[in-house]
Simulated assay, not measured.
Amino acid sequence: MQKNHKITVVTVCYNSVSEIEKTILSVLSQNYQSMEYIVIDGGSTDGTVDIIKKYSDRIAYWVSEPDGGIYYAMNKAVEHATGDYVNFMNAGDLFFDDNVLSAVFEGKKYVDDVLYGYHILHFKGGYKPHYPSDPNVLNQGMMPFCHQSMFTKTCLLKEQPYDTEFRVFADYVYYRWLFNSGHTFRCVNKFVSVFSVDGVSASMSLAVYYEMCRVHGWKPKLSHFFTLYRKNMWRKVRYCRLKIFVKSLFRPDKYNVNLKRFKQIED
């Protein structure tokens, strides 16, 4: 009988008391049996740790202590991972439904280094599905998928951790390196995650812009920064609740104020 892949799901968080429980429940509600859960907290002081302790008997490993940021915490989690693949479902992120891991892994045997699926973008006004691009766009300055919807071989993450010198774009740098090193990627044709566009990587501060320039080899220009800043702010306006509601009347498969209106993709 074929043995299913063991999956390590990781949540990193810091002062996320308003969001951490829904993420924990989303992970623990998965009906896939071969899964372990790791939670790395950055030393929260707002009650986040109390919520983690509430579910500690179902968490394989957790710790709360100051660290060097998101990617530092993700690397720390991988040190304790024993699964074949790792997924990062951080505070505020959700699996699409309770059957995601089963839909992707039950009865399947993968040899690919990176598996990636689809995700649902959560704007303040509602939801919009996003379908990944081909991995070759990594060399065009674009991230074709999100880490919430990816499963990366644990052995790769242990051998080559995220570069913590990058505080926002370390995942992009990492997967661009994997792609250009000849590692294999496979789309699993399933909705995997739901995540908010208001996260750290979705903001456009000068610090984020300078890191972006470093990653892509651009020369920083104030005019370029303001162009990206306006584009980022306009995106938030474009997907206000009224607009998504109106669009959902005509394209409910593409826009909706209710997440449950979206259905999983069948094989």
Rank of each mutant, 00 (worst) to 15 (best):
181 S>D: 06
228 L>A: 10
225 F>C: 04
255 Y>R: 03
240 C>D: 15
119 H>N: 14
68 G>M: 13
176 R>A: 00
215 V>K: 03
260 K>S: 13
35 M>D: 00
95 F>W: 08
231 K>P: 01
179 F>W: 13
20 I>S: 05
115 L>V: 03
63 V>L: 07
200 V>Q: 11
200 V>N: 13
88 F>P: 12
112 D>P: 11
108 K>S: 14
126 G>P: 15
161 P>I: 01
172 Y>D: 04
173 V>L: 08
36 E>W: 13
21 E>K: 03
64 S>M: 11
112 D>Y: 03
191 F>M: 13
45 T>E: 12
72 Y>P: 00
161 P>V: 02
93 D>R: 00
166 F>Q: 09
236 K>V: 11
89 M>E: 12
205 S>E: 14
12 V>M: 02
215 V>W: 08
48 T>N: 08
24 I>H: 02
142 M>R: 12
146 C>Y: 05
151 F>W: 06
28 L>E: 01
198 D>A: 02
98 D>V: 11
172 Y>H: 10
166 F>C: 08
105 F>R: 10
109 K>W: 00
241 R>Y: 06
246 V>R: 12
85 Y>E: 06
24 I>P: 07
89 M>H: 03
102 S>H: 08
122 H>R: 14
129 P>Q: 01
75 N>I: 06
210 Y>N: 09
29 S>T: 04
106 E>I: 11
17 V>M: 06
146 C>H: 05
164 T>R: 05
138 L>G: 05
50 D>G: 02
205 S>Q: 03
41 D>I: 08
265 I>V: 15
58 R>Y: 13
4 N>Y: 07
68 G>A: 13
83 G>A: 15
129 P>I: 01
47 G>E: 04
179 F>S: 05
138 L>K: 07
126 G>D: 06
65 E>G: 08
26 S>Q: 10
49 V>L: 15
98 D>L: 01
138 L>R: 07
148 Q>Y: 00
245 F>M: 06
209 Y>V: 12
92 G>N: 01
193 S>K: 02
23 T>G: 05
231 K>F: 10
99 N>G: 14
3 K>P: 02
250 F>C: 11
91 A>Y: 09
153 K>L: 07
111 V>T: 15
116 Y>T: 13
20 I>N: 07
251 R>T: 10
185 F>V: 09
28 L>V: 09
153 K>I: 07
93 D>P: 04
168 V>F: 12
86 V>P: 00
46 D>H: 06
165 E>M: 09
161 P>K: 03
117 G>F: 10
178 L>E: 03
228 L>M: 13
2 Q>R: 14
162 Y>V: 02
227 T>Q: 15
179 F>T: 05
118 Y>F: 05
139 N>I: 05
260 K>T: 11
4 N>C: 10
228 L>P: 01
110 Y>M: 09
26 S>E: 09
137 V>I: 09
196 S>H: 09
169 F>V: 06
85 Y>L: 03
37 Y>L: 04
172 Y>P: 12
171 D>G: 02
135 P>Q: 01
33 Q>H: 11
197 V>T: 11
107 G>N: 09
212 M>P: 02
158 K>V: 11
42 G>M: 03
